[in-house]
Write a protein that binds this DNA or RNA. Structure first.
Lengths: 342, 342
DNA sequence: ATCACCTTTTAAATCGATTTAATTAATTAA
DNA sequence: TTAATTAATTAAATCGATTTAAAAGGTGAT
């Protein structure tokens, strides 16, 4: 089958079979108008016959394009793949990339500490034409360096100035609506499980929580705001601790659905009724949210859509389109189900 | 910062600064003993100063290695990322790849029909050194062609002969243990939601289901074996149809946990008690399985471990190791929880 | 001083494509 | 018929590295 000693058909092989030069093959396959139509057909036939597929590495080197974009998630594989958010995000991204014949290079960090490697590995050695970066820590200097170097980037999350392309949610409003809903239901002691506060997303959701209290003129017991690691386990244990310490609360606004689910599990096991005794609201609206009993009230965020928009935006930038808005803000929606009562 | 007009530091730049030839730079950075120690230090300093990182594309072209492996999943993005199995698989794979400084190229198919594109895109154009293929349809000829071409492949699933590297589960035994457990509990009319039967995995699980009946000398009502699409929705609707058609059954063995969860939801909504009236058993043991009420009895399969082993196996093959076993069979384990009673 | 033999360094080929500039062939104009 | 113009093809440079083979420099023996 193969034409050269190396095991694969190259442009040279096609050229030889078609009786033309490699340059002509390249131009013919690229539909360059300079090459005669008859010659083009000849080349096409030869290429088909040899089942020629261009070597992307060679092409990339010359054209300085890789037809690949990288998704950098400055976090461990375990964290990334435990959270349904990322699966949905990937679904959206890959869908767009498949349509446009782009490849996806996926990069997570081995160690939580050195976020650097994820960046360096993909970027400085030019394996991708552009990058989507999933919200990094506020103190991540690598990201800034990356942007400064002029590398095409789409950032998932809010960014302080208007210099970079972002796809973000209105987390403040989302968290506000959840908390406000609980307050309107008459809940007064609302626990909030937040995520690591060195990420903007968790600051914003906490902000929304505070804003709702403020607007309803309810003061917050700071003891009820607890930083957790976003896992089901964290929610499960978090509630256990509250109950063990006999800290009174009548509602829980979890920073994400996983923690909400863990929390509900603990409450169920302790015989505490949701929503009768404790109202629970989550954030994300993962597929499973409506499968639990009670079904989980939560703030819906368009996870897949985020991926789609981010990928489209990046491809737009790579294709030199000028009409791309820097900032895309997606709205959230409170999905009222059973876990909050009312 | 950058040294040439192109925006990036190349080997030439380092050579110029160090006052040596590019060849020497290459050898020096590769720790070749031919180059004088003092020269090597000189080159190192120059490289550091310019923050030189080799261009992988150039390196790949010459060395015919990409330091990248591809994961091919002949299915749509939607299917892939809706199933927790793939997330866990990815977790295992990326963990190993990160440790070994390999990159991951992820390939799904745009259209369910043309499985071909997923293969062609990654393989014939040599963007990866090797591939992990997630169980393909039994009729997928692309996979065979791929193997024939000598491309390093690890296949996830059983394969008829011993020619190719596989990581597989003992699905028959797993399904047997689940079904057998239900039979031992006295259940006699066990519904089985299976997946597409053109994939070996679903044939095997069905086989296990049959075997258990056979061994317990119970005959199967073929009406209870129903082919579904593996989604939560499918389980939900599948049960609805059975109930609406008033087909009697006292247990359900779902081919995967998602369908089991959907089924339990439907039963709950109809006021049918699990496990008192109907016993439910799933397959996979996804994280959520123990979060439901009742907690889901299911057949545990080591999803992450599958990814780890597959990646290690492929890297082993790529490194020319000879001691790698062709076939790795992982065992499953029945996790008895609440949903089956007893 | 010449030759042989190391040790270092470097020129040049190579990987597989693309693209510019030059060449050749064909056509038209003078 | 010859020059000018256009069309089609190709040689050669290029992308950024690696690697082989050749060259240069140094040492010691004869």
């Amino acid at each position: 089958m193969m034409s050269n000693g190396n095991g694969h058909t190259t442009m040279k092989d096609v050229a030889r079979l078609a009786g033309v030069s490699p340059a002509t093959v390249s131009l013919a396959l690229g539909n360059d108008p300079r090459v005669n139509i008859k010659t083009r057909e000849l080349v096409r036939e030869a290429a088909d016959k040899l089942r020629y597929i261009p070597n992307e590495i060679g092409r990339s080197l010359r054209s300085q394009k890789t037809e690949t974009i990288a998704l950098i998630i400055p976090n461990t594989s375990h964290h990334v793949f435990s959270h349904p958010y990322f699966a949905k995000l990937l679904e959206g991204i890959t869908e767009v990339l498949n349509e446009n014949e782009y490849n996806l290079l996926l990069s997570t960090t081995a160690e939580e500490s050195d976020e650097q490697s994820a960046y360096e590995k993909v970027l400085r050695n030019r394996r991708a034409d552009g990058v989507i970066v999933s919200s990094a820590s506020l103190y991540d200097r690598n990201f800034l360096r990356l942007v400064d170097s002029g590398f095409p980037v789409v950032y998932l999350g809010p960014w302080s100035n208007n210099d970079i392309y972002t796809v973000e949610r209105d987390d403040v409003t989302g968290a506000f609506s959840a908390t406000n809903h609980l307050l309107k239901l008459g809940r007064r002691k609302i626990v909030h499980f937040t995520g690591p506060l060195n990420h903007q997303v968790w600051r914003d959701r906490l902000e929304g929580y505070r804003l709702a209290h403020q607007q309803n003129q309810i003061s917050i017991n700071e003891e009820l705001v607890i930083e957790k690691d976003l896992s089901v386990q964290a929610g499960y244990e978090g509630v256990a601790e509250l109950l063990d310490r006999q800290i009174p609360f009548d509602a829980l606004f979890a920073g994400n659905d996983l923690m909400a689910i863990g929390a509900m599990k603990q409450l169920l096991e302790r015989g505490i009724k949701v929503p009768e005794q404790i109202s629970v609201v989550g954030f994300d609206d993962i597929d499973m949210a409506s499968m639990f009993h009670p079904t989980l009230t939560t703030v819906h965020q368009p996870m897949k859509q985020t991926g789609i928009l981010a990928a489209q935006k990046l491809l737009g930038v790579l294709n030199g389109r000028e009409d791309i808005e820097k900032k895309t803000v997606l709205q959230t929606k409170l999905m009222i189900r059973e876990s909050c009562g009312g």
